[in-house]
């Protein structure tokens, strides 16, 4: 038995042929499956394309016929969304909140993850588990205490935290910690320890070893962690909805909710709404085409092992 299987693994080309032939035996079911998969793929691509195309059509055209080409392109939808729909301010707010919170989440989580992955202390696995527990806590549990806490701190110190970018950024850094630590602990654990050993023998301090040796080695992991934290922050809605009420502080999801709310009263300017949605999705699509493999790997990493 074992010798047979071993012989088969070495015969790579034969293996492939066997798999193919076993696949073609269930031709009909297989082809139906494939057809359906391609149909869903086509639907997904169509949705994105439809959103972008519709963002360039006038509301009148869209209402007359939901499918159509953007001739001539109505770029003023973007101008309207940017100014009247406040998507301009929201886009910049979202971008700054996202980038700053993702950077600091990784900056705080990376040293912790490194120390936890390397430590032999009895408490290290317990702390790692505590971070992992945070993954299961739904946002609605934390919403009210964090809101009250921010309001209290604002009252006592005068630092603006409610209805401010600062408040949301701090909250997002905190909320991103469990996943970032979890992801990076696994990543640091997979890095070899020999180089650190050499550095320690040369008398390098722990901080120096971390900054000059481990961080460059961990760059792929840090990029993944930062990207995933950024995606999470870019999409965050629940806390933003409670913490940001003023037009000047809104992020994109909140601007979108607001424009939908006012559409319920004044009739919808679909052109601007499509433009706003495109502003929300397109940056994600760009990041995804650029770093897709890492994003998928990062989001499935904990599960695959």
């Amino acid at each position: 038995m074992t010798s047979v299987t071993r012989a088969l693994t070495t015969a790579g080309s034969r293996r492939r042929r066997t798999l193919r032939s076993s696949g073609s035996k269930t031709g009909v079911a297989g082809w139906i499956g494939r057809a359906m998969v391609w149909l869903v793929v086509a639907f997904n691509i169509f949705l994105i394309a439809w959103m972008v195309v519709s963002s360039l059509r006038s509301t009148v055209d869209y209402l007359r016929q939901p499918l159509g080409l953007p001739v001539p392109p109505h770029l003023e939808n973007y101008a309207n969304a940017w100014t009247i729909g406040d998507f301009g301010v929201a886009f910049l707010n979202s971008a700054s909140v996202t980038l700053i919170s993702a950077f600091f989440a990784v900056a705080i989580a990376a040293p912790a993850a490194y120390a936890l992955s390397r430590s032999t202390r009895w408490i290290a696995p317990k702390i790692t588990a505590a971070f992992a527990l945070g993954l299961g806590v739904p946002g609605q549990v934390l919403l009210i205490p964090i809101y009250i806490g921010l309001a209290q701190v604002q009252q006592n110190t005068g630092i603006p935290l409610i209805d401010s970018q600062l408040g949301l950024t701090i909250v997002l850094i905190g909320l991103n910690l469990p996943f970032t630590v979890f992801l990076l602990t696994g990543f640091f654990a997979s890095l070899p320890g020999e180089i650190e050993e050499a550095a320690a023998l040369d008398g390098a301090s722990g901080i120096r070893t971390f900054v000059t040796i481990m961080l460059p080695l961990a760059r792929p992991g840090l990029t993944t962690a930062m990207t995933l934290a950024a995606i999470g922050s870019w999409n965050e809605t629940l806390f933003s909805l409670v913490l940001l009420t003023d037009k000047s502080t809104r992020t994109l999801p909140i601007a979108l909710i607001q424009i939908m709310n006012s559409a319920a009263f004044n009739g919808a300017d679909w052109g601007s709404i499509f433009a706003g949605m495109t502003l929300m999705v397109l940056p994600l699509l760009i990041v995804y085409t650029w770093l897709g493999r890492r994003i998928v790997a990062g989001m499935t990493v904990g599960a695959g092992k």
């Binding site: 989580a109 040293p111 702390i127 971070f131 806590v137 850094i173 905190g174 971390f210």
Partner: peptide, 13 residues
């Protein structure tokens, strides 16, 4: 190395 992140966990979770 661990304390800042742990403090964040305590404060926000």
């Amino acid at each position: 190395f661990v304390l800042p992140a742990l403090a964040g966990m305590v404060i926000f979770y």
